[in-house]
Simulated scan of single mutants.
Amino acid sequence: MTAVPAGMVSGTGAQAPARPAVPWLTVIPFAAMMAYADGFWVVSLRGAVGAIERTQEPFVSWLRESTVLLPLFMLAVIAAVTLSMRWFGPVLAGRKAFFTTALLVAAAGTLAGALTLAASEAWDYALQHNLMGALHHANSAQSAEQLDQSSLGLQLAAFGYGTGLLLITNLVVTGWTVAIRGGRLDVSRRAKEAPPGRIARRARSGRSLAGATDLRLTLAAVALFGCAAIHLAVIPDHLNHWVVASAFFLALAMAEVAGGVLLLGRPGQSVLVAVAAASVVPLGLWLWSRTAGLPFGPNSGVPEPFGLADVAASLLELGTLVIAVVLLRARRKADGEPEGRTTASAHLRALAVVGAIAIGSLGVAGAVPGLLGDMDTSGNTTHGTTH
């Protein structure tokens, strides 16, 4: 970990202080170690008390689910180092700062793992609850209510024991990772300084290095890319029963990719309006299909079940819509440079972007058959490709 570099030349020719950059060589190793270690316990507990439908191929399940959840653990580690930097500064000085940061990293990873475990246990209970109902209709000797209560108690106990296991595991993993890295635990790193020629060119064009990327624009672009990935992932499933829906998702994904690319430049008002439209249209159709049911299509008038993929895509679309509206309102109040060119710290920008990536990853995982499953309205296990 090194000191913060001297200033950079801003668009006005003045010296602008450089902000500490995200220590990705700290974030990625810690996140990967905790994601795969915690994923082992989640899958192990599922094999012990989970629904029988989800206990097949435990090694493959551990590998793919831990990989899908890696962005969530990256988000947790970034949040921990960001909080530590706010408390102790960009350089950890003293044992108190060092050990507090290590505990923050372990606690953040445990929170991410506990959320994952809670979702897994809730899913198992829902599947087992459906099985209890089937046994009741089959006139089982033991009442469905007793079996259901036993299943709920078992899942709650597994969550309690599992959270303790996750905490101990993450403490050990954090200490082990620090030891492997030679006792280093960085919360920031020196931001790379651009060559003088590039600084001069940006200064002449009225753009600063610090203001080149806006948090809101970057977040909206990443959210659009995540939506496009989810929509592309659901196309194969819709080809089997409604080709029109597949064509719509393909066109929507292409529009979202184009909108995201334009947002990374210097978007004008027309681009922001188009981005808002590309978000509000699918969001409105999704709400309609999940409440009253679309008046057209193979299942017209029948509400569709919620799934992981469609919920994730809708969250990203909602976030993009809010950002586009905020920037449009800001542009109407500004005569010159749009308000969307304000800067944000690298850590805050990384938190927002990795958070959007985590939601998009979960959405894609829920849309790909065989990767993660979902439940339809009847309680049967299906894949969350509806949108």
Rank of each mutant, 00 (worst) to 15 (best):
239 L>K: 00
76 A>L: 09
207 R>Y: 01
278 A>E: 02
335 D>W: 02
113 G>C: 12
217 L>N: 12
62 W>F: 09
7 G>T: 07
281 V>E: 04
358 A>I: 11
96 K>W: 00
300 S>L: 07
354 V>I: 14
51 A>I: 02
360 G>E: 04
365 A>K: 03
345 S>P: 01
150 S>Y: 01
6 A>N: 13
363 G>Y: 01
271 V>S: 05
198 R>K: 10
196 P>V: 06
95 R>T: 14
181 R>K: 11
171 L>A: 11
95 R>S: 13
194 A>M: 15
86 R>G: 08
347 H>E: 02
137 H>M: 10
362 L>D: 07
349 R>G: 10
322 V>Q: 06
266 R>V: 11
267 P>N: 03
15 Q>I: 10
142 Q>F: 12
301 G>N: 07
211 G>Y: 03
275 V>N: 06
247 A>E: 09
122 A>V: 00
67 T>Y: 09
192 K>L: 13
245 A>K: 05
53 E>W: 07
272 L>C: 01
163 T>D: 03
19 R>T: 14
188 S>W: 10
280 V>M: 01
338 P>Q: 11
274 A>T: 06
318 L>Y: 02
208 S>W: 01
333 K>P: 03
379 G>K: 00
122 A>Q: 00
339 E>G: 15
179 A>E: 04
149 Q>N: 06
378 S>N: 08
349 R>D: 01
78 I>N: 05
23 P>A: 13
139 N>W: 12
